[in-house]
Design a protein around this nucleic acid. Structure first.
Lengths: 193, 193, 193, 193
DNA sequence: CATGAATGAGTTTTCATTCAT
DNA sequence: AATGAATGAAAACTCATTCAT
């Protein structure tokens, strides 16, 4: 064992997170703690010292993986073209979302955690997205008859489908399609990919 | 036990299927065989005589629930307007899909089964859909740059998001959006909802 | 394995109870379910089918072992000499109590269960004992300055000490001592053992 | 950490002992080493440096708490009235025994340790008590048909029952009863409380 | 020396699956 | 053929104990 060096308790935390993410992606919510610990090269006890519940571990993954997106969303809020910024952000979400089967799964299968998790992991994210969306809609770049919830459904769904294998080209094609669908008809032709 | 008036093994099969569907819808993949058997009013043994694995049971549900869709798809193939028939069929898929959390879950959580299940449950369905799609595309009603796989991703995803709660209006709005997204730009305005 | 014969699910229940009692007596509350199951010659699952919780198992032991005492107490209530009946019953308690380390332990160590357990297992017993005691005291055979609670303390304690090894002669000597202690002074000499 | 001003390893030992006693009293044998260490304001490692086993720690508590009793017993040996000295000592034991749930528990639940613990913690104590008892019996103040072992059973038991809640008055009443029971009949009336 | 992170065997409990009746 | 008792592997989680810092 080449761990243990005290100061890399931090390293352990990250190793666990990575292992957990991998296991969750491979086996869904059913992924076993023992397997995660083993993959992380760590005893179960260590895992539990860091994340005292399977649930907490899941949420930690979400939170960790959501961070860059939060940053991106907040940055996007300062962009000059609300529509462009919004659609760009949506694409970024998908670029990142290769990391999220665990997320989708935990939300799906753990049921009750959904809200708690969204609060914790996605609280800020959701806030930022809400604003991003509102700005784009006000600017007339997003159809007025589409709600933020619709967007979540569409994005969440595709993001789910997208886990696993689909090739990058295809994903990108579908994302474009989705963006296009919510874009205001008036300006649609101009933005045609 | 005062059931089985002789030879209604068939009745049992259906009862089991119904019970399983209900339990899966209620508890996801985690639904327990014992609970299913009990709800079906049958001993576990009987359940196992019919479906020798939890997995097989899941696939059987998929297959059973896919049947009406297969019929619909095949009927749609005979329609005169390929575009209309195709989009109508997509809507029908979503109308039916309220029945499929178990499906989504089993696909999601069982991972490996995904492909096998698709083969078995959706074999015919896929065939019919493929033709439906091809005809609509040839007729110029569906964008040429969209593939059948794209469609699966989009529909599968939304169908996943859609499980659980979302109100019918919202679902229908999103489905329209999706249809619109794959519709050929030329004719889009004409079909505006 | 020479079990399994369906109709001796009952036999299993008893085997489990016996094994549990033995293990509890040997290792206190810490006794492990696996060990109990193994000693009973049964899978853990079987044990859990019968007693769905360690707690329930403990209470079942108490209840089972308390039964004969309840009977004895109730019978004693009909005796003509209240004092004699009472002291006789106390002796009977100790004769039976070779079976009770588990009891003492669960009461002691599980804390919260104490009351619940008493309610369930000893409810009737306690009632009967209360009457037995009251009658003996009214008849002037038990000292007026002793309460039922005192008696419980004294009997419970000795009964606890008594678990494990102490030879029968010694136990009986101590019980006599105890009885003597609560006997009314007036009649003490007459009853001298 | 801003403790250990050098060489107060001693201070640590006592802090640990106190913490352990508190935790054991609160949670029985199940008390966790981590909790004890934390309460003592010490790392687990330090605790283990001092007491290399949970068991050893338990025995250390017993030994520590037994000390004053040993002193009392030895002093009692020099008293002029053997009977009075003996009974007085018994009362003192109970007065002290509010401190001993951990003891009772460890004896109870650890089973095997019982004897070892008695050897270590109570070795001297037992010796002194033996003499005290012998003298009282020789002096005719204690019934001749009672053995030291009987006494242990009776006292140990009551002491066990007594842990936890019972009010002081009741305890004292029961102790008197017990003393009375072993007192020689001849002199009993004279000593009536 | 003290610290507390790491370890992993062990605990209770669940559940798919088998098999005697 | 139907039943449901039995099985035991596996899961989440705990905790005494070790050992790098």
């Amino acid at each position: 064992m080449e761990r243990h060096l005290r100061a890399d308790a931090a390293r352990n935390r990250e190793a666990i997170l990575a292992a957990a993410e991998a296991e969750f992606r491979a086996h869904g919510v059913e992924a076993s703690i023992d397997a995660i610990a083993e993959r992380a090269g760590v005893g179960v006890g260590t895992l539990y010292r860091n994340y005292s519940t399977k649930d907490e571990l899941m949420r930690a993954i979400l939170a960790a993986r959501a961070e860059p997106l939060v940053a991106a969303a907040q940055e996007a809020l300062t962009a000059s073209d609300p529509g462009a910024a919004f659609f760009e952000f949506v694409r970024r979400v998908f670029a990142a979302s290769g990391d999220f089967k665990a997320l989708a799964d935990s939300l799906t299968a753990a049921g009750l955690d959904l809200d708690a998790a969204k609060q914790e992991a996605g609280g800020e994210l959701m806030g930022a997205v809400r604003q991003l969306f509102a700005r784009a809609q006000e600017a007339g770049d997003v159809r007025a008859d589409v709600t933020l919830d619709d967007l979540h459904l569409l994005i969440g769904g595709l993001s789910h489908s997208t886990q696993g294998a689909a090739d990058q080209r295809q994903i990108s094609r579908c994302v474009d399609l989705l963006c296009d669908a919510v874009r205001s008809p008036a300006i649609r032709s101009a933005n045609r990919r």
